[in-house]
Amino acid sequence: MTTNISECINAVMKCSHNLPITALVKSSYFRLDELFARKGSEALAQLQVGAEFSQTLMKAIEFNSKHMNTMNVYQFDRSRTNFTFEELVAVPGSRQQNYQVLLDERKCDCGYFQALHIPCRHVLAACFHARLDWKRFVHPVYRLESVFNVYRSEFRPIGHEDD
């Protein structure tokens, strides 16, 4: 995590080496302004075409759904919230072959569902099996309205130092 943070800071400070503090702050401010304007425009464009989630999330869902047909699903309750999965084909990165999903508790043994708050392949398979909408198991922060609200704020131009 420390490496990721330092890489992010290095990316923000790129082209700002050896600048005085005032110029460094000003450079960072303008770069963030540019980022917010660009990301806000992208989110607005996706909202205007009717997208509910970001393209990145939809790619992750598509990737996770590719493995749904490689497992047996066992439903353990009438309320359609408790499932066990037996994977028939080894999936790269998997530690085990049997997983339990508790939809009402938003838990899966793989840990992906709890960590990222988006449906893993097991949750997608459970939703498909129980005829539930997987979208209700996506955290609201991934909705485009939430993303757009982050970038809704606008930066004010920096006035002259004498003002």
Rank of each mutant, 00 (worst) to 15 (best):
T2D: 15
T3M: 12
S6D: 11
S6Y: 15
E7T: 06
E7M: 11
E7R: 10
V12E: 10
V12Q: 09
C15N: 13
C15K: 07
H17R: 11
N18M: 13
N18H: 09
N18L: 12
L19Y: 10
P20H: 11
P20W: 10
I21F: 09
T22Y: 14
A23N: 15
L24Y: 08
L24N: 12
K26Y: 14
K26Q: 14
K26C: 09
S27A: 07
R31G: 11
R31T: 04
D33H: 13
E34R: 07
A37N: 13
R38M: 10
K39E: 14
G40W: 05
G40H: 02
G40F: 03
E42W: 03
A43Y: 01
A45K: 02
Q46D: 04
L47V: 01
Q48G: 00
Q48S: 03
V49D: 01
V49E: 12
A51L: 11
E52G: 06
Q55F: 08
Q55L: 08
L57Y: 01
A60V: 11
I61C: 06
E62F: 05
F63K: 10
N69M: 05
N69E: 11
N69I: 06
N69V: 03
V73P: 01
Y74V: 06
Y74K: 10
D77H: 07
R78V: 08
F83H: 00
F85C: 00
F85S: 02
E87G: 05
V89H: 10
A90Y: 09
V91F: 04
G93F: 07
S94Y: 13
S94E: 11
S94T: 09
S94C: 08
R95M: 08
Q97A: 10
N98W: 06
N98P: 02
N98T: 07
Q100V: 12
V101Y: 05
L102R: 04
E105T: 04
R106K: 14
K107R: 11
K107V: 09
G111K: 03
Y112S: 00
Y112I: 02
Q114C: 01
A115I: 06
A115N: 05
L116R: 00
H117E: 05
I118Q: 08
I118F: 11
I118P: 10
P119Y: 00
C120Y: 01
C120Q: 02
H122D: 03
L124G: 03
A130M: 04
R131F: 15
L132F: 06
D133E: 14
K135Y: 09
H139R: 01
H139A: 13
H139Q: 06
V141K: 02
V141A: 14
R143F: 11
R143H: 14
E145Q: 09
E145A: 15
E145P: 03
E145N: 11
V147F: 11
N149S: 13
N149C: 11
N149F: 08
V150K: 05
V150W: 09
Y151R: 06
Y151Q: 02
R152E: 05
R152Q: 13
S153R: 15
F155T: 04
F155I: 07
F155W: 08
R156I: 10
P157K: 12
I158S: 12
E161F: 04
D162W: 14
D163G: 10
